[in-house]
């Protein structure tokens, strides 16, 4: 596997992530509409997108505020949904290894579900991509998210609901495609079955909400893989 230059990695990630960026833009517009209902300004939404940059948690936090739940409740729910990011950044440690501190800061902040998963899927296809591919995808999503959320607040009246367009399914379909690329064959069967079963049991029994079911399911599958001796 030959390494690519940082610039080449960066721009090929921008190109590869564009279908996901379209989905992000549509969600960004819808989020801006929601934020307008919470009486949040363009400035607040721009600052939030820039420094939080975690879409699902932003939507949840503002949705709680609109529902009148109070700031503490809104933050707790949003932080809970982001706890998985600890596992996301930990799982690609080689990407950050030996990097100067400022690259760690940028790399960590630019890591989202979408560009993390896309980088892994691209690697599974045999390309030796790493830090700059992650950051390139992240930067593209970052600009898309900040611009679309601010536009959503400004043009709050003329925005279609993502669900009416079937766009709420865009990310489900994307993660199905990425899971397919990450499938390494029989050795993944048992860990993945454990993950799916734990998620289904904890979620359907009402034992955990979806934020925690995801974390517990992911960890249970990974620990199963750790306990299986390698060939």
């Amino acid at each position: 596997m030959s390494s690519e230059t940082p610039q080449a990695e960066f721009w090929s990630a921008v190109k590869d992530i564009s279908p996901l960026a379209i989905g992000v833009a549509i969600y960004g517009l819808a989020f801006g509409l929601l934020a307008a209902q919470a009486a949040m300004s363009e400035l607040q939404i721009g600052v939030m997108g820039t420094f939080v940059f975690a879409g699902a948690s932003q939507i949840l936090a503002v949705e709680r505020l609109v529902a009148g739940a109070g700031a503490i409740t809104a933050v707790v729910a949003a932080v809970a949904i982001n706890l998985r990011m600890l596992l996301v950044t930990a799982s690609i440690r080689e990407v950050y290894q030996g990097r100067p501190w400022w690259q760690l800061v940028i790399g960590a902040h630019m890591t989202t579900d979408e560009n993390w998963a896309l980088m892994l899927a691209t690697r599974a296809k045999g390309r030796n991509v790493g830090y700059w591919y992650l950051v390139g995808g992240g930067a593209c999503l970052f600009l898309t998210w900040v611009i679309s959320t601010v536009c959503g607040v400004i043009f709050a009246n003329n925005i279609p609901e993502p669900k009416a367009l079937g766009m709420d399914f865009a990310f489900t379909a994307a993660f199905i495609a990425i899971a397919r690329s990450l499938w390494r064959g029989n050795k993944d069967l048992l860990p993945w079955l454990v993950s799916v079963s734990i998620v289904a049991l904890t979620l359907l029994s009402g034992l955990l909400d979806s934020s925690w079911a995801l974390i517990v399911g992911g960890c249970a599958g990974a620990l199963t893989a750790g306990l299986i001796p390698s060939e």
Binding site: P191, A225, G226
Partner: peptide, 23 residues
């Protein structure tokens, strides 16, 4: 074991995410 678990974590997290979304 810890390295094997960490290597399997991305796939397990994504399949868990898909399960949550579909359920």
């Amino acid at each position: 074991p810890w390295a094997r678990a960490l290597n399997s974590l991305p796939g397990c997290l994504i399949i868990s995410l898909v399960s949550v979304l579909l359920l």
